[in-house]
Computed example of a mutant assay.
Amino acid sequence: MGLYLAKKRKCDGNFVDSVYHFSDMHDIGKSLIPEDILYSTEIYTDHERDIMNQHPELGCQLLSNILTTFKYDNHQELNIILNIIRHHHERYDGKGYPAKLKGTDIPLEARIVTVADVIDALLSNRPYKKPWSIEDVELYLINGSGTLFDPLCIDAILHSLDKVTLIQSRYPDVIEEELQA
């Protein structure tokens, strides 16, 4: 997805490389969520959902503390990492969380990871659901373009669905990481 966006001059190679390498940290805040909520196979109560929805901010706090301790000072990369962690649950229509950002106010890196994360979740087997077919995922993405997802990112991923299918069949556990590139 990132390579397609770079070809469209929406970002550069360094940005794509950073998103690729840092995207795996998007859910780091889940390490601070109580295990009974994190590993629940039941539908969350409103209270449990509120706790789970704290993971982006918790992740930013955790990573900021770590990077400050080690005096990490690459501010461009730091912004990309923190934007991915904080904003990967924002929605293009502004109804996401935690900041209810809308459209291009959502950092591009977060918009990319949002799409990749959703594709990974839908294609994965989970205790509460079976994996979706690639056709159903494609339809969901198309229907969510402009509301859930950035249309530019959906356009990019739709141009790469053959790669998604290939990656999924060869490496079912690494689909999300490869979607970033």
Rank of each mutant, 00 (worst) to 15 (best):
R49W: 13
R126P: 04
D12A: 13
E77Q: 15
L108N: 02
S18E: 12
S145G: 09
N74P: 02
H87P: 01
P34W: 06
G59Y: 01
I134A: 08
R91S: 11
Y171E: 13
Q61G: 08
T147D: 15
D162C: 05
P131I: 09
M25K: 07
K100W: 06
R86F: 05
C153E: 04
D173M: 10
M52D: 07
L179K: 01
E176M: 11
S169N: 13
N74A: 09
T165F: 02
G2M: 06
A99S: 12
D24V: 15
P127M: 13
V16P: 02
I112G: 00
H89R: 14
L63F: 05
S133V: 07
L67Y: 09
T69H: 11
H89S: 14
N65C: 10
I112K: 00
E138I: 04
I175A: 01
L139M: 10
E90D: 12
R91L: 12
D50G: 12
Y128D: 15
V113M: 03
L158P: 00
T68E: 14
C11L: 14
T104K: 14
E109D: 08
I51V: 15
E42A: 15
G2L: 09
P151K: 11
E90T: 08
C153R: 02
D93N: 15
H75M: 11
Y44G: 07
M25W: 09
C11Y: 07
N79M: 11
C153V: 13
I119Y: 00
K163W: 06
A181R: 08
G94K: 06
I66E: 07
L58A: 11
G96D: 05
L141M: 12
I28Y: 05
K8A: 12
F149A: 04
E57K: 06
M52K: 05
V19F: 06
Y92D: 05
G144M: 03
L152M: 15
L62P: 01
L3T: 08
G94C: 12
L158R: 06
Q168I: 06
H159W: 02
T45K: 07
M25L: 15
I66C: 10
E176S: 07
T45H: 07
M25I: 15
T104S: 14
L152G: 03
I154W: 01
P56Q: 03
C60G: 05
H55K: 04
S31R: 14
Y97V: 10
N74Y: 07
N83V: 09
L78F: 12
L141E: 03
Y20T: 15
R86G: 03
L82R: 02
S160R: 11
